[in-house]
Structure formats: C-alpha cells, structure tokens
C-alpha cells in the first residue's frame, strides 16, 4: 500500500533519483533526476526516441505491462518508493492517471465511460453527480449533456480526448500523465486541451510529454529536456528548469540547439 509520509505535504509530488528503465538488455532511459512539483504542469520535450514516453510510463508503473521491463534507481511519489515490492501497481495507476496520444474511449456510452472506472474503484456516491462533475472539469459537459447515452466513439477526436480526461478524473487521481494528448488534434481542439490543463492544474499535478515545443512553451510551468546521454543510446534529462528559462535562456547547448530548431 502506498502510504504518505512527512514529505507528502511538500511541493514535490514525484521525484526521480537516478531513474533508469531497461527493456530487456536495452537501456532506454538512464540516470534521470527530476522533481515534479505540485499543482504545476511539467512538460517533457525532446526528439523522437529519447525516452520521453518511457520515462512518463515509469511514473505510474505502466511500463510493467511490457514484458522484460526493469526499472533502476528510485521513484518517489509523495515520499514513498513507487517500486517498493509492497506497493500495488494498480493503486499507483489510479492515483497517477494517464491520458494517451490517441483518444481511446471505451465502446460504451459517454456516461459509462466515466462511471465504469469509478464503480470498479468502489465509488459509492451519486454517480450522476460524479459524471457531471468530471465532464464539467474536462470542459465537455455543455457539449454532451443532452446525449450522455450515446456512444463515446461518436464524439469528435477533440471531444473523445476530453472524455478520456474526464474518465481519468473519475477515479480522483492526484497526478495526470499526458502522453502527446493533442498530437492528433486540430489547433482548436489542441487549444481547448491546453486551456483545460490550466484549469486542471489547480486541483491536480500534470506531466505532459509533447513533441510540440510551442505547446510546452505555452502550456507548461516547468520543462524537462530529454536527449540521449552522451555516448549512449539511452535518454536522460539534460536540463530541467522553469519553462521560460528553457525557452529564453537555456543553460545547456544541446537544449539551445533543440529549442531553436538546430538539433541533429
């Protein structure tokens, strides 16, 4: 069971110390030091294949679903070692929710998309109220309130992604991990997701992986720059700073080359 200790009230929600991830013999991520701060949006940027998604998935033990995955180093969530053998990965995953690149609503009604997870996690309150509250938080309520019985798959791409966010909220997570949540969306749907993130961060802590540097610059408070560690094929965080620093005066030359489009 994950238990909070004294550091649970600190500003740090997640902390990676020398965190590495292996897929079999392949070292994908190495030596990541990172503190994710409460009620802030942390963006992880970097070129393809540098381990952004792998790192993100290690935050809620989603990587374990891939056979042969091993994690090195330590990851603390509210001061507790997430990979301690006594910790139940299912509990980790509902306290640290995830939204994926491609919206993946269940082939069920809009209502059930939200109610289902909550019911499994033993929610005993008024389900109608929960569904409305989650849809409102995901800025989707006004668009779907008259068709809650319709299939979630009948919504537009942007609406489906917000439905997935609403579904994540239904199990009352503390952290929301977003893996390229807007990469398949048009600019208007993208903007809605970004505006939504600003609302959600008042109650949740958000970590977002994005290929879109402008999105990281617009939407995040902190930015972690990932690149392959020198002389290896494993990604690591080479610079982690306030977003404005990363985009105005980065400390690392490789960060500078990446954010100014001269990478490679």
């Amino acid at each position: 069971m994950l238990q909070s200790n004294d550091t649970a009230t600190s500003d740090t929600v997640l902390e990676a110390r020398a965190l590495g991830v292996r897929y079999g013999d392949l070292l994908a991520v190495t030596d990541v030091q990172l503190k994710v701060l409460r009620n802030r949006i942390t963006a992880i940027i970097g070129p393809s294949g540098c381990g952004k998604s792998t790192l993100l998935r290690s935050f809620n033990r989603m990587n374990e679903l891939v056979p042969g995955t091993r994690v090195e180093g330590t990851l603390y969530f509210e001061g507790q070692d997430v990979y301690d053998p006594s910790v139940d990965p299912v509990e980790v995953r509902y306290r640290i929710g995830m939204v994926f690149q491609k919206a993946n609503p269940f082939p069920k009604t809009i209502y059930e998309n939200i109610a289902w997870g909550a019911r499994i996690h033993g929610y005993r309150g008024n389900m109608d109220d929960l569904v409305e509250s989650c849809l409102r938080q995901a800025a989707l309520w006004d668009e779907v309130k008259d068709k809650l019985g319709q299939s979630g798959l009948a919504l537009s791409g942007g609406q489906q992604q917000r439905l997935c966010i609403a579904r994540t909220l239904a199990v009352e997570p503390e952290v929301i991990l977003m893996d390229e949540p807007a990469s398949a969306l048009d600019p208007i749907a993208t903007l809605k997701i970004e505006e939504l993130m600003q609302e959600l961060k008042k109650r949740y802590t958000i970590v977002i992986v994005t290929h879109n540097m402008q999105q990281a610059a617009r939407a995040s408070d902190y930015t972690a720059m990932m690149m392959l560690a020198e002389g290896t094929q494993a990604g690591t965080v080479i610079e982690y700073n306030e977003t404005e620093t990363v985009f105005l005066r980065p400390n690392n030359k490789r960060t500078e080359d990446y954010v100014t489009g001269r990478f490679g």
Binding site: M213, Q214, A217, F247, L248, R249, P250, T255, E256, V259, T260, G261
Partner: peptide, 9 residues
C-alpha cells in the same frame, strides 16, 4: 519562425 532562446533574444 517561432524563434526561441538565442534567436528570440
């Protein structure tokens, strides 16, 4: 060109 960092400065 969406300048960043040195370009933006």
């Amino acid at each position: 060109q969406q300048p960043m960092a040195h370009d933006l400065r």
